[in-house]
């Protein structure tokens, strides 16, 4: 009886150990999430390539670090924050929309609006001028009669 209880205790301890190790085990990370985070970061040894797109060794190592951090339970934003802490905002492919950076987001919009405004003004000016040209010219009836006669005579 005593032996059976001991065995039961051992079994329970084993189950508990298995459960805790399972929960402590790292989270499975989808490659999609790794790719998504890597896509936000600039490959530091490339020109205009993201960590997700670069075939360089450094980018590969950075993807491994992203995967590791996600597996350790960090959120994609926390992983991004880690890289920003190390490299500065320079590491982000799209600058955050605040402060001086807003200029980058707003200026193109301002230019597009200004461009439309210039086009609208110019088109209005041009059409107005053409209308002016198209106005019928007052012709002296005597003169037009004389032209008609001379044309008919063929001289």
């Amino acid at each position: 009886m005593r032996g059976a209880r001991a065995r039961l205790l051992v079994a329970a301890a084993l189950v508990a150990a298995a459960l805790t190790s399972a929960s402590a085990q790292s989270k499975t990370v989808s490659e999609e999430t790794v790719h998504e985070v890597a896509g936000r970061l600039r490959c530091v040894v490339c020109q205009n390539l993201s960590v997700a797109d670069s075939p360089s060794e450094m980018a590969g190592q950075m993807r491994a670090i992203i995967r590791e951090r996600l597996a350790a339970g960090e959120s994609p934003d926390e992983v991004q924050r880690y890289f920003v802490q190390r490299y500065g905002e320079w590491i982000l492919l799209s600058p955050p929309r605040r402060g001086f950076n807003l200029l980058v987001w707003l200026l193109p919009l301002v230019f597009v609006i200004a461009g439309f405004a210039v086009v609208a003004i110019l088109v209005r000016q041009w059409t107005r001028r053409r209308r002016g040209v198209a106005e019928p010219v007052a012709v002296d009836p005597a003169m037009s009669e004389r032209i008609r006669r001379e044309v008919e005579r063929g001289s």
Binding site: V44, E57, M58, Q61, M62, A64, I65, F83, R86
Partner: peptide, 13 residues
């Protein structure tokens, strides 16, 4: 070998 130290120091070249 893993690049962890270089990334920790923000090394880019």
């Amino acid at each position: 070998l893993t690049g962890t130290v270089s990334v920790d120091y923000g090394v880019y070249g």
